[in-house]
């Protein structure tokens, strides 16, 4: 499997095997054949416990789709999801709760990830419903909320009774992180968690995430379209292009020695702000496979 730790024996937390997701394209006219967007096309990834993996790629390459499939928020068309040694891809929905405690997601758009009708108190309390017995009393709940808000760096006194529209994008994202942490998950999928924010707030949030990782022993699956953003926080990076992983390697490797042409372009765009010549020119054969280049460095070839 790609993105494997050097010593082999690491504790794999999440393993995605040959995940596929094709969205049907609605079409008019007389063409009767159904066409599909290959949003995720045969993707395999491992995330070891405590080892942050970043998934990088341009807009529309299928990153969000893959993240949602990993949580089983949307059904995959093929492949399997193994969490902590157990295949969860065929578990009926009603038994999923057990696993969802361990995997949470921070969504891409801070303006749509918080229900505008709920105050922060309601949002956080709702997140506790699954673990109600852990926080049975009002007091226990209040303490937990205070702890989480403090952890994500929200300190205004009246925060609990405010509505989402009364917060900035960065603050909303912090609330979303607090909500995702309520259940004490082991894996946090961060879908472009900082992309919609300005550079300074991005930096703050990245630092916050690093702190939280220490504090709560989290593993991050970090989704981003910007290589530079994930440089600091990720140990491994997988580059995605048109639904496929084209290159996967430890973070330093990607920056030092990018092999796939698409990675080179991404890197050029992130570091030098150079205009991408034109990504669509890159050809990928249907039979292309990830080939090991040594030191955990995999590249799509064929």
């Amino acid at each position: 499997m790609p993105v494997e730790g050097g010593d082999g024996g690491v504790d794999v937390l999440l393993e995605l095997k040959n995940i596929k997701k094709f969205f049907p394209i609605k079409h008019g006219g007389t063409d009767k054949r159904q066409r599909f967007v290959r949003a995720v096309d045969d993707v395999s990834l491992d995330i070891a416990s405590g080892e942050n993996l970043s998934l990088v790629g341009e807009s529309g390459c299928g990153k969000t789709t893959l993240g949602r499939i990993a949580l089983r928020l949307i059904p995959a068309d093929g492949g399997s999801i193994v969490f902590n040694g157990e295949d969860i891809s065929r578990i009926p929905n009603r038994y999923l709760k057990e696993y969802r405690k361990n995997m949470q997601m921070v969504f891409q758009d801070p303006y749509s990830s918080l229900d505008p009708r709920f105050t922060v108190r309601h949002i956080l309390r709702e997140a506790m419903t699954l673990t109600m017995n852990a926080y049975p009393t009002e007091d226990a709940q209040r303490d937990r909320m205070a702890e989480l808000l403090e952890a994500v760096g929200l300190r205004q006194p009246d925060i609990l009774s405010r509505y989402p529209h009364e917060f900035s994008g960065g603050e909303r994202q912090r609330i979303a992180i607090a909500r995702a942490l309520v259940l004490n998950p082991r894996l946090l999928i961060l879908d472009e968690a900082v992309s919609s924010l300005d550079v300074i707030i991005q930096q703050q949030l990245i630092n916050l995430l690093a702190d939280l990782q220490q504090r709560y022993h989290l593993t991050y699956f970090f989704i981003s379209h910007n290589l530079r953003v994930v440089k600091k926080i990720s140990r491994k990076i997988a580059v995605m292009y048109q639904g496929k992983i084209v290159e996967a390697a430890p973070a330093e490797e990607i920056f030092r020695n990018p092999l796939h042409p698409y990675t080179k372009e991404l890197l050029a765009a992130a570091i030098d702000y150079k205009a991408i010549p034109h990504g669509r020119g890159i050809q990928m054969a249907p039979k292309a496979r990830l080939v090991d280049q040594g030191q955990g460095h995999f590249v799509l070839e064929g």
Binding site: L71, R100, M103, Q104, M105, F107, E126, L183
Partner: peptide
């Protein structure tokens, strides 16, 4: 989706 992932 968030509510779903929280197990509601």
């Amino acid at each position: 989706l968030a509510a779903k992932s929280l197990g509601l």
